[in-house]
Each structure stands twice: as structure tokens, then as C-alpha cells.
Design a protein around this nucleic acid. Sequence first.
DNA 1: CATTGTCTCGACAACGTTGTCAGGCTCCCG
DNA 2: CGGGAGCCTGACAACGTTGTCGAGACAATG
Lengths: 334, 334
Amino acid sequence: MRDVAALSGVSLKTVSRVVNLEPGVSADLVERVQTAAAALQFRPNLTASSLRRSDGRTQTIGLVLENIANPYSSALHRAIEDVARSHEVVVFAGSVDEDPARERELAGTFLARQVDGLIVVPAGADQSYLAHELRAGTPMVFVDRPPNLLDADAVTTDNFAGARDAVRHLIAHGHRRIAYLGDLSSIFTAEQRLNGYLDALERAGIVLDADLIWQNLRSSDHAQTAIIELLTAAEPPTAVFASQNLVTIGAVRGIAALGKQFEIALVGFDDIPLADLVSPRVSLVIQDVHALGAAAAELLFDRINGSDLPTQRITLPVHLVTAGSGEITGPFAA
Amino acid sequence: MRDVAALSGVSLKTVSRVVNLEPGVSADLVERVQTAAAALQFRPNLTASSLRRSDGRTQTIGLVLENIANPYSSALHRAIEDVARSHEVVVFAGSVDEDPARERELAGTFLARQVDGLIVVPAGADQSYLAHELRAGTPMVFVDRPPNLLDADAVTTDNFAGARDAVRHLIAHGHRRIAYLGDLSSIFTAEQRLNGYLDALERAGIVLDADLIWQNLRSSDHAQTAIIELLTAAEPPTAVFASQNLVTIGAVRGIAALGKQFEIALVGFDDIPLADLVSPRVSLVIQDVHALGAAAAELLFDRINGSDLPTQRITLPVHLVTAGSGEITGPFAA
DNA sequence: CATTGTCTCGACAACGTTGTCAGGCTCCCG
DNA sequence: CGGGAGCCTGACAACGTTGTCGAGACAATG
């Protein structure tokens, strides 16, 4: 900037005014400064600018995700990017891989870089380490899972209702022995979905068989092994509820490996890629990930722009997309 | 930092020394400063720090991608994130959607934030706008596609050989009428892959039929429409080479819609999700996206750490994964 | 005991930018 | 022709941190 000022023969402050489009600079000086800036390929240093600016904004937000490469996370990321872009804000993102220590570390490095706000898919059971920064005025919004031990905005989907409806659907098609395949039970969404499963069974008067519940399946391979074991056991289920996308994929592979695609009813929670092309086809509880991300980002930017409404908890609905697999009838069909 | 200094009764500089683990501070002062910092939940301001530091590093890199939500881009992103993390660097990323203006804008906003380096999947036909920053010392590496009108490092895959091998494979299974379905022809990889297709045909002495070449298919829907039109024409192809993942997905849908999954041989370039579960199954030319991203990131960090080797162009090999679809025999099978 | 060296520590300036404020100019009015 | 208002412009300090340098304390050396 100093060079631009020297070349155009004005003061630093005038260059600053021109660069920031401030009014009150004569037309010929604006012209002179702009040609000088163009000649020198001048690009203002936004970090210095935000250091000095009164509001301290860096036009930057941080995004703490489960795993950037996972389609769920990357869909969220894209939705948030689009909203951020409309505010001329760029996004830092990082993967946490369900590791609470990594979550904390990543949030910390974003905060150290003076992000204007933070969007977090929490992995750990305690977000109180953020309380100080939150009180100090850094807005934060939690997505997919609410924060623990911290009072902050959150946008989640209706996991309980989605799981309950999925299992009800299977019951309505005549199933009584319905297996539950689930992710790490410590994850909020996994717990909610298990509760939905249990609720649907109880209301239908079906006695729980604990052997049909498999949790803590951390990959599609684990899920595949689990479903093969379930289906080859003495009293196999006639239907399966898979509570997460990787688990659903493992279930599909397992059913395909056993050649039972026309015998076992399967409903999964979360979308899976190319769901319309896989065999066996699978009925799915779909959440609108784009809407989730957009809602979280809008909430965050409202806070950044000064909103001081009470903490909000938004729950978005899900819907069941039937695809012929969940509709395989069971032995108790009417 | 001022508060920490006041609370522990030392100067700013001593706090700085403790925070940066510089030697030459007595043990009891280190202790006092650390407890004061902890009490105040002090977090150093990295933007101010990098402004003042002699090397000016922000421990930040920028990543310009086609579309963050696309599995190819997000796999690249994750590979780069992992390398960046090992250097204690965080990553800005953004989507360009094949828009050259957006590419330029995004690279500019990253540079204005003083990133230590840039990794770009270029969308436009001219990256000379980066020449000034490159000469000024900001390292840049291009991935998947080389830069145009700019001398910089690039890591790409062997698109020509992959396409040629795919088409050779179809020819070896007795096909002569092989369609080419391709992405936007302005994209470097699309051009290379078309050349590979043409080369394989020519070396096999097959006369080109221009009606079998469909380019500029920008989505899987377009590709699906195109393949349905091709397969229902007067002289349909017996095999199809789909030159990109979205195009392959459209081709799979189109073939499935026509019920021709056991008649048409299909080979696609790039992996598609759940490739082992889709019907019809599809043979694929796979590139190692993780290795691509990792190689680009390593190259970038070498530059950031001072390497001044001549510009490098790295090409990674691809390999064909057969899955029963590319192996459907054609009318000229031996 | 004087001198030298080493080890700690702090004062000060600087990174590139913007907020504040004062000064100079022009114009118009009485 | 004096004076007040309004418009441009620049000098200066400041944002939060670190590089430089010098001062003071103390030990080792002759």
C-alpha cells in the first residue's frame, strides 16, 4: 500500500479510502490511485486490515466436521459454503473423525485465527471448553448434534421420529423380528435413533429381543459382518433397520453376499449415494442435509450480525422414501 | 496478552517468549505466565502474530476445488488436509463449479488472506493472472489439470493411457461400435481422455463414427438422456466408454432404464460410490485420488519450506478394475 | 578486585492497515 | 472583504504480536 501511495503521490490514508470505496475522495485522485494499484498488482492484506478494523472481522468462519470426505459432511460443507459466500466469507474446514481431542484442537486453531464464527458437528460429550469464547462474543452454531454442557444454537434433524417411522413401516408390512444395526452408541443421533426404534416396537407390543440389537458398528465392514452373523443365526430377523449411511451400505453388501435381496426387508437412515441403483434396493429415511447446513449458516450469520435472540434449537423433519426393499412383507402381514 | 503480562507481573515480551516456547526464561516465570494464561483462558492471536513474524507465515493454505460436495473433490480435500495437519496448517477450501471467473475470485480471496500456498484444480483456460503472486513467492501447485499460460508445479493422472486402455479392453472383447460419452470438452482431462479413445480406435483400425461421440455432458441427467438416445438409434453402439464419474452414473441409469444391463458393455473413468453394488455393474478406470492430493500437498509444502527445484510435472498411473460389465462380449469376439 | 561473559528480562519499534482528528482549501453569504 | 460551512486530504496512533537491542545481575576468570 505504501508503494501505491508513493506512485500516485498521495498519503497511505487516501489509498486506504480508495481501496475501501469510502466517499469523500475527489474523482481524479480515485483514478490515479486505482491505476497505480493496478500497475503494482496491489492486493490489500486482509489480515492486517482485520487486525486494525474496529469490528475485528476476518470474513472467515470455521467448520468442524466429522470427516470432510464423507458425503454427509461434504454436503453440509457445501451448503454452508454457499451461504458464507453470499456474505463474502470464506470457510476453514477440518475433520475430527469422532475424536473429542481432535475436535477441541481444531476449534482452538480456528479461534486462534480469529474466525468470525464457528459451526461444529460435535464429537465429544462436553463442549464446555468453548464457553469462554462464546461468552466473549464468538458466535457458534452446532449442527446434526446439539452441544453438551454448553448453551448454544443447534440445528438437528428429527432422528427419533425418523427411526420410529422407519420401524413402524416395517411393522406395518408384517414384521416382528426387526434387527437394529447402529453406529457408536455415544453419538447423539445414534442414541435418538435407537430410542425411536425401541418406541416403535413398544407401541406395537413387540417384545424386545436384545440379540437383534447391534451397536457400535464403526464402518460398513463391521456392519456387513454383523448382518451376516445375524442372518445366519438360529432365529434370524425378517427385517433390518440400519441407523446410519455406512451401516446401511454394509447391510446392503451383507444381504447381497447372502443372496437374500428378496427376503430381507431393509430400511436405512440417511441417504446413500446412488441409492436408486444399488441392489438390493433400499428404503431410506432421508434428511435434507442442504437445508440443515443452510439453516445453521443462516443462524450463525444472524448472530455475527448482532442478533441476540435467546438460544435456538431447530429440528428439521425427515421423510421416508420407499424403494421396494422396506416393503418386502413379513410373516405377520395382514 | 497484555492482561496475562499484567497478571503475572512481567513484560509483554516475556509472555510472548513463554507462549512461543523460546528458551532463556527462568522456570518460575514460565510457571507464573502459564498459570496466568490459563486463568485468563488466553489464546494468542495468530493473525497478529503472522503479521509481525519475519517469515509472515499464516499456517494456512487455500484449496480451489471444482465442487466440495463432489466425492472426487472431497477425497482430494481430505488427502490434502491430512498432509496440512502434519504441518500444523489449516485449509481454506471453496467450490468453483467450472466457472473461470469464480476460480479467479476465489484464488484472490485466499491470497488476500495471506495463505502460505495455493492448491488449485483450474477451471479456466488461463492462469496467468497468478503469475505476479507466484513470482512474488507464494507457492502454488495444480492438481488434476495442469495450469495454462503459467509455469508451475502440477500433479495429474495419466488420463490418456487410462482412456486408451479402457477402450482397448472393449475392443479386445470384440466391440467395434464403441460410444464416447464425455464431460465439457474444454476441460483438460476430458480432452486427454477423448484422445485416448481416438488413439485406441485408430490403432485397432476402426473407422471413427462421429455419431458415437457425445461431449459436453455436464450432469448425470444429461448423460442419461444421451445414452438412451444413442442406444435407441438406428445403429446403436455395443459398448460405451464414459469418461467421467457423473457421466458414468448417467450411463448406468440409462442402461438400467432400458433394461439392457446384460447387453451393453460399459467402462467408466473415475471411481463411483458403491460401484460394487450398482446394477448394471461397471468396469472402471480408477485413479488414486488420495495419492494425487497427497503428492500435490507434499510438493506444496516442499516449496513453502524453501525448495527451489525446477517446476515439476508429476503424472500418476491409473488402473482398470473389471467388474463384469466391460467384459460383455461384442459381435466381433474371437 | 576488575574484567569478561552469560543469562534473563524489558523497552521500543515495526508488521500493513484503518479510526480519529486537525488543517487547508473553496465557496457562499452578509 | 471577512468569516463560517463544507469538502478533501494527510499526520498520527493504534490493532496484538514479535525482532532487536541493550541493561542489569551474577558467575567465572585472571
